[in-house]
Design a protein around this nucleic acid. Sequence first.
DNA 1: CCGTGTTTGTACAACGTTGTAAGCAACGTT
DNA 2: AACGTTGCTTACAACGTTGTACAAACACGG
Lengths: 340, 340
Amino acid sequence: MRHRLKDVAERAGVSVKTVSNVVNGYVHVRPDTRARVEEAIAELNYRPNLSARNLRKGRTGVIALAVPELDIPYFAELARHVVSAAAVHGWTVLIDQTGGGPEQERVAAAGIGDHMIDGLIFSPLALTADDLANLDGMPMVLLGERVDHGPADHVAIDNVAAAREITAHLIGLGRRRIAAIGSQRTPEGASARLRLAGYTAALAEAGIGYDEALVASASAWHRADGAAAVRHLLTSGVRPDAVFCFNDTLALGALRALHEAGLRVPDDVAVAGFDDIEDGRFSVPTLTTIAPDKERIAKLAVELLAGRLAGDRDAPPRELQAPYRLTPRESTAPGPRPPR
Amino acid sequence: MRHRLKDVAERAGVSVKTVSNVVNGYVHVRPDTRARVEEAIAELNYRPNLSARNLRKGRTGVIALAVPELDIPYFAELARHVVSAAAVHGWTVLIDQTGGGPEQERVAAAGIGDHMIDGLIFSPLALTADDLANLDGMPMVLLGERVDHGPADHVAIDNVAAAREITAHLIGLGRRRIAAIGSQRTPEGASARLRLAGYTAALAEAGIGYDEALVASASAWHRADGAAAVRHLLTSGVRPDAVFCFNDTLALGALRALHEAGLRVPDDVAVAGFDDIEDGRFSVPTLTTIAPDKERIAKLAVELLAGRLAGDRDAPPRELQAPYRLTPRESTAPGPRPPR
DNA sequence: CCGTGTTTGTACAACGTTGTAAGCAACGTT
DNA sequence: AACGTTGCTTACAACGTTGTACAAACACGG
């Protein structure tokens, strides 16, 4: 059976509140009283009922992290960092899988408001600012691409700059026919838009003409989509000498499809990704990518949330940028052969 | 501001309990009353306070899933299925990262007992049965390898049979010097022990002698450990013609290390894994593996938990087996070259 | 020895919800 | 016309905790 403060109090011969004081580390409790209470707590293996505590305090000590899919490595890695960062503040993280669709994300954003949660870290794929209105003042931090003029705090890396940098890296290798994979038609694909913008900017800087035929769209950003996009390019007669994929899973799919087509990477086609997931460090060949500082992103997000919870609910939304690093690996290694 | 039942009641001109009845779908509410209440709910954007509801009901509607690490793909994929299966029962899943160490797992198992949770699905790496004593009757389902004589329900696949089957598959390809990667010295490595047992059984059946030198241990089961194990084998002069890795991430690391050593897979060395993670379907070459039915594992676990919660807390622990399938891919393809 | 201030403990109410018991109509039956 | 029945609604208490207000015990200086 489960014991309550009252049981402990009776056993220790004190009032309920005194036990509560001991549990909460209140200072003015005589050492011998404290000892008696602690003994009773140990004997009964007492644990506070968090529902009751939460009800009383109006806080739950739980924050939610809403991501599109957990088995997309980028989000799993991010989740790990968020859990760690939240633990520093004594918070538990409830991880919510939205599925990425606009309707599901709306449900997540709204339905999660059913209390039990002090704040929300949200990595939206399809959601726009308007969908986030009815949160009733629950503190929220958005990750990833900016939801334009959103009412919430925001943490991201500079997507345009990063995409430009990695595209420039490909150009620096002497590649000229650089395909881009992951573009999205839908108005929701904010990431895609920003990364495409960086890609075109780099081309323009280098004086390379933009070729519509080199840009392949991908509805989702899974391995299968990357593979499909490459196959589509090749069967339509396009022969790129480099491929910039808008994330690493797309790139891993692309590697696969290029391999199946008998093309060598990086000799025939250089490949670059985005996100720096663990897989890309062990793939054959290893994957050149943009490595966002995920740990820092998580830390910043949690701290923004902590700030809101600590008081300034009504401060204007803040936009923070996390650092990233271009990380060249075998898939864009120069020279005729990758270094064994 | 947040609204309460009382606010809705005042606005609709009824009692608090009537509003509660409407919210909970109680039948005997006159249609016009119901309409008035629902209107008031909508106007105020009322959401029930779950802490209060939980306190009153003694249930939280939340179950926990404790896994060693979220960014191990197998656990991420499993988590997705558990979340889906739990949603069917109206439960939210709190995902807990234990880190896999014995001490951390003990903390997870015990500390999670601080209410807020109706039950626990636990995938222990290092924990033994004794560590699970102080759960105070909280229903728990264990995933993965059996914690011997544990007091809890249990869902797993037949590891020995699966390992034997995939080893036999390698033998069937004509391979004779089959390395095993992932063995563990520690008493905790239950999975490792079972899979090793299947490996030796298959060798024995085929009349192949067991060679200690072909068995490489790995403290963790990450890609880096798989790569390190292969490098270790090769530098110590061992020349296997096949490698059975105790999970897929080890195998992906092994593929990488073999590639770096200039060995071709499957021509020179066949490689097999275990778990059927998404990566293995797109790696170069694609990975032969044992595919446990993760969806079914998750479903069974949730249903066992549901059974406990519904009543029979004291029924004897049950052991359920989930199906698996041997899934041959390129990394063990027969013939001189993998199919283009 | 008294007044004053500090320490230590208590009783009570409140957080927002739902189960229980009971009240009050309106109805059809005797 | 009195009587259960049924349908709908309400008041009240309880879930386990903590904040507030206060009382009792104690320490100290004048």
